[in-house]
Nucleic acid binder design. Sequence first.
RNA 1: GGGAUCGUAGUUCAGUUGGUUAGAACGCCGGCCUGUCAAGCCGGAGGUCGCGAGUUCGAGUCUCGUCGGUCCCGCCA
Length: 585
Amino acid sequence: MYKRTHTCGELKRENIGDTIYLNGWVNTVRLHGQVVFVDLRDRYGKTQIVFNADSFSGDFEAVKKLSMEDVLSIKGQVQSRAESAINPKMETGEIEIVVGEYIMLNEASPLPFVISDRENAEENLRLKYRYLELRMEELQRNMLIRHETYQATRSYLSGEKFVEIETPMLMKSTPEGARDYLVPSRIHHGKFYALPQSPQIYKQILMISGYDRYFQIVKCFRDEDLRADRQPEFTQIDMELSFIDEEDIFSIIEGLTKHIFSQVRGIELLEPFERLTWAVAMETYGSDKPDLRYGLELKDVKEFTDASDFNAFKSAKRVKAIVVEGGAKYSRKNIDQFTDYVKKYKAKGLAWMKGEDGVLIGGISKFFSDELHQSIRSSLNVKDGDIIFMIGDKESVTLNALGQLRIEIAKKESLAKTDEYRPVWITEFPMFEYDEEANRYIAMHHPFTAPRNEDISMLDTDPSHTLSRGYDLTMNGYEIAGGSIRIHDQKIQEKVFSLLGLSREEAIEKFGFLVEALTYGAPPHGGIALGFDRLVMLLAGTENIRDVIAFPKTTSATSLMDESPNNVSIVQLDELGIKIKDIEK
RNA sequence: GGGAUCGUAGUUCAGUUGGUUAGAACGCCGGCCUGUCAAGCCGGAGGUCGCGAGUUCGAGUCUCGUCGGUCCCGCCA
């Protein structure tokens, strides 16, 4: 191999006449008999190299056999291209390299797919040969964005006096929340470690230990079913701070987020970030992670439907509507598709009316008096050419289903600008959700989240309406961070455990070391964790988390490249004292 | 756990109401070619139609099951 003097992206007109060395992959070969053009590629770019039978002293027949993805080391001279041969699409398009000598470093086998763009192969094939897909420009760009996001995060937080501390990957399984990935212990037969769902307990303990600003870019593991934006192992920017309140957290995270967007993409986010309470977000957008790049707000219409002859909504707890500007163009088929869509979210149907000639027509309009038509039109600002969609049901279904329809319509109508970023804090979450299956309260965030000071007394009287000091940062419809001010008072902590159905004994059994630690001088503290992968998705402009992870898993949590998970030997199992049982289906 | 959808040459796809020998492009192999940059031209090889049953005189096509990918619901404190 020749030591390269340059990369494949940097040679320009100024280098003409220089003798240079390049290493790289054969991107394309264009064979013209006595002259062969090769685009040599590395991660910095592409450069055209030329083998000319007249001047090339080596084996020209071998040159003719060059093929895609061979790895070459070349020595050559930079020369200018004829005016007509300049390629304006290439960074290095004004020059080319006349090859004097070359070394074939590795001859590539015929490829399972052509490495030009990702549409050339189905995803299962690309995942099996991920190392080939990672050579593609789009993924290389995403990995670079990811790299820059790591660096921006570390430099910003370090500058703000945060200390990066690693916490264990092998820890105790905790009962609440997602399923744990378990790791059997060899030394302790029958016992298991769990991989962290998050370093939650450790970071609180670090506060008790006095590291008042902690952060970590850390892998977390959750054994749950996957989605386009969810992987079984994912990365968080995990943070915890002492002697702070919500405003401190907001200000640091706004600073960090601004810094990342500015450093990585040159985008200046506006400060301060918007804020919505959870209740307002749910009422207005039908989501706790609303995309504010477009309106389509949910409006209350129960007063109108109650006054109408449309009886289906009379028993509905809530009736909400969205008005789609220009939506009167929707055909019966479109509306049926939207109806099917909202049914996925438990809505029984989708009512509609269109604005035309100063009244409302179609759908359920005949059940409304002329007077109601006018009140609805003025109250909801419905113009001719618009359509109103309505859902009536219990509150959670109405809000969620209409909120999902809002997103679907925005997608169909391309209402969201791709280069716009709208961060918004969601605050004042309920402390608890009632789990009807388990017949008990479960923590909406996690069991260490503090209630609002003014709500502490409600823990005894009305726990379901207690609001917490939790907060999420959302952006463009994604939850990118979530956290809370924690309980640092053990009495309140025990009260919350008991509301969650955990007896003192159980709480000590499960979180004992934290409960005990809280008694030895716990400072008021709180924290947040940013979903690193989702943040990079937003920065990279993709909607698929696999696009920003070098070696992702499929939606069934397998790796097609290394075929994990996989069987292990009997010897390994014996050492662990584990026997595989057949599970009946 | 459930729903939708996809699976045909190395790859991306086409393949008619079920009907003769399953096609195209790119890639691969061989030949021609000194200015291409999606190089071009000529020729060739290449198929367990994911797998397994079933219906039928006949299945890439219809039915059932199964495996795998994707998207979604549930789930993800």
